[in-house]
Design a binder for these strands. Structure first.
Length: 652
RNA sequence: GCCAGUUUAGCUUAGUCGGUAGAGCAUCGCAUUCGUAACGCGAAGGUCGUGGGUUCGAUUCCCAUAGCUGGCUCCA
């Protein structure tokens, strides 16, 4: 007998070799039908993390168990991974001779990389594949696990002629290899899987894309088929609705509708043009940050858009990124070369060097809304989130070793204030450290890296941030802390970043005179709460669906006179608002009030003031809030105070 | 950069199995002077992304090229 501990702490005895499915059955058949996977934490497991098991896999020692239903991430992962096998099974039935790469579960579904030989898969074929998957799912095929030897595994796939699987197997250790079979399809797989295919009720293949074998651009391009499956048809429908909602919130669409920014083929790929309303929006965001940064002791600086190549040779960026950047700008002077600035830090280092610095000067915080230019690969460009010209809300903090943590904490405070003001309620902080093994790409000493990494970890802990640690995600010059926010419909975006840098001060030979009279090297911290204005505006538009907070939105109020007769009064109201720094305009076009209200709503303007006979006589306005909420009629002065209060409360 | 798809009026789009294109919104004119999500009538607007090729004839077929989209790789 073995003892199984349940999440509520209760312990029950079971026969050795019992399965999660049998345990669930013992509780209720309904539960057993819904359980897709189980986390089993054997008493001997010192990490306490346990392993996700197939529900049919025997449990052979005392263990804690957690049964996973669809709502758990673990269950979804197993479900989708199994679905990728179902996809492969369907593909093998429909396209005999196809070869398979890998087919994992991802955040939203799964994919399988497939080599179709000479065949070019087109989207029209997906429907037939979906139907075949459903057909197989209904036959209730069990996922059967089988341990195989390395030789056996190689033999199977070489007879099948699948060189991709053979390559994968050749890298595995003998004795750790397992196959899973569903119906007539057998795949190399570590598992775990769902019990059988019958729980897969709804299938949607979402996209076809090219993907390099093993992510290596020098190797074979495989066809990647993306899909998602659900245990209920209604869940698929909900998912499709969410996709529609995401489409509606696309910042590229909203940016066009709200006339914020545009692109021109003639200006060039990835070079956004900010239209008047968008430029004003940026300006408001800049002022917002300037104000708080001033409170935190930042000093605003300005640096040119180009810099001598020598500057980037010194910084090391030329060696690392030179070949993939915009080409150097030449001059009439033989041998003279300049680069469009790809970052602001080297310039700020030179600003630091303009005079000898004392330990009393530190920390020194140089801030700049600095526009930088990077030659991103053409296929990588996307709306405002990935462009070739963008403006960083950049700052570099030069400080003493003992000040790092405090400076870090202060930056975290600024970032949290930004998130709060812009209503990003959910976020996590990702601590990016060096790769655990492969360390030759990092510049700087082991000792300095250790110090930097622990400073970040401590600061994050002190501020109580929800954190995840990622190894191998650090920049080449230092570890970093990145903030990932969740938007209103649950998608994750990377925003603010804080990075420690022991490298540039070294390269630029930055120094300060300490209290001991000796020369010391300052530490540099890069930070950008928005990341870039472009990216931030994009995320903000997707987060809010274009319904920006009142303080930020391009047009706050529109005044609609019922007819021409009240246009003069409407103008008067509009002027009063403008004089009180409220962004108001008038729409006195010869259109019905209904039509103008509709158009104003579609333009996402927060307040509509309707004025006619009654309002003109009383010196009042009839207030309608975005979405049709009638706020009643009030004197103009009262409305002005009302708006000013709302703005003030949003910025508090 | 790589794979695939896509590009028709300012915007959203229909369409032509090869015979030079049709709509809604926006714009302009007329009518209307209106009380909270589309009043009516009329007009104008397109060398169908660009350059080649095939053809009696190309927006449609083929090739090249650019932009865009979805992925891959990349992201200082």
């Amino acid at each position: 007998m073995i003892n199984i501990t349940f999440p509520d702490g209760s312990v029950r005895p079971y026969e050795n070799g019992t399965t999660a499915y049998e345990i669930a059955m013992g509780i209720s058949p309904k539960l057993a039908a819904e359980v897709l996977a189980a986390t089993v934490i054997p008493a001997s497991d010192e990490t306490g993390k346990g392993t996700v098991y197939d529900i049919t896999r025997p449990i052979c020692e005392d263990a804690a168990i957690k049964l996973h239903k669809w709502d758990d991430a673990e269950a979804k992962k197993v479900f989708w991974h199994s679905s990728s096998h179902l996809l492969a099974q369907a593909l093998e039935a429909l396209y005999p001779g196809v070869k398979f790469g890998i087919g994992p579960a991802i955040d939203n579904g799964f994919y399988y990389d497939v080599d179709f030989g000479g065949h070019q898969l087109v989207e029209a074929e997906l429907k037939a594949i979906e139907d075949k998957m459903i057909e197989f799912a209904r036959t209730k095929e069990e996922f059967v696990r089988k341990e195989v030897s390395k030789a056996e595994a190689l033999e199977y796939f070489s007879s099948k002629g699948d060189e991709y699987k053979q390559e994968l197997i050749s890298e595995l250790e003998d004795g750790t290899i397992s196959f899973y079979r569903n119906g007539g399809f057998t795949d190399l797989c570590r598992g775990p899987h769902i019990k059988d295919t019958s729980v897969i009720k709804a299938v949607k293949l979402t996209a076809i894309a090219g993907a390099y074998w093993r992510g290596d651009e020098t190797r074979q391009m495989l066809t990647r088929i993306y899909g998602i499956t659900f245990p209920k048809k209604s869940l698929l429908d909900e998912y499709l609705v969410l996709l529609e909602e995401a489409k509606k919130r696309d910042h590229r669409k909203i940016g066009k509708e709200m006339e914020l920014f545009a692109f021109s083929q003639r200006v060039g790929q990835g070079l956004p043009l900010w239209l008047p309303k968008g430029a004003a929006l940026r300006d408001r965001l800049e002022q917002f940050l300037r104000k708080i940064q001033k409170e935190y002791g930042y000093l605003q600086v300005v640096s040119p858009h180009i810099g001598n190549k020598a500057l980037y040779v010194t910084s090391g960026h030329w060696a690392k990124y030179g070949k993939d950047s915009f080409r150097p700008i030449t001059t009439p002077q033989e041998g003279e070369e300049y680069l469009l600035k790809p970052m602001n830090c080297p310039h700020h280092c030179e600003i630091y060097r303009t005079r000898p610095r004392s330990y009393k000067d530190l920390p020194l915080r140089f801030a700049e809304f600095g526009t930088v230019y990077r030659y991103e690969q053409s296929g990588e460009l996307h709306g405002l989130t990935r462009v070739r010209s963008f403006t960083q809300d950049d700052a570099h903090l030069f400080c003493r070793q003992d000040q790092i943590k405090e400076e870090f904490c202060k930056v975290i405070d600024i970032i949290l204030y930004v998130f709060k003001t812009l209503d990003f309620k959910e976020f996590t902080a990702q601590i990016s450290l060096r790769d655990k093994v492969n360390r030759e790409k990092y510049i700087g000493s082991e000792e300095n890296w250790e110090k930097a990494e622990s400073a970040i970890i401590e600061a994050a802990a002190e501020k109580g941030l929800p954190t995840v640690v990622e190894y191998g995600e650090a920049a080449f010059y230092g570890p970093k802390l990145d903030f990932m926010v969740k938007d209103a419909i649950g998608r994750s975006w990377q925003l603010g970043t804080i990075q420690v840098d022991y490298n540039l001060p070294e390269r630029f030979e930055l120094e300060y005179v300490g209290s001991d009279g000796g020369k010391h090297r300052p530490v540099m911290i890069h930070r950008a709460p928005f990341g870039s204005l472009e990216r931030f505006v994009a995320v903000l538009l997707e987060h809010t669906g274009g319904k920006l907070p009142l303080w930020l939105t391009p047009e706050q109020v529109i005044v609609l006179p019922i007819s021409e007769k009240y246009a003069d009064y409407a103008n008067k109201v509009c002027n009063l608002l403008n004089n009180s720094d409220i962004r108001a305009s008038i729409d006195d076009r010869n259109e019905t009030i209904g039509k103008r209200v509709r158009e104003t709503e579609l333009k996402r303007i927060p307040y509509i003031l309707v004025v006619g006979e009654k309002e003109m006589e009383a010196g009042s306005v009839a207030v309608r809030k975005q979405g049709g909420k009638d706020q009643g009629t009030m004197p103009v002065e009262e409305f002005i105070a009302f708006i000013q209060n709302e703005v003030k409360s949003q910025l508090a």
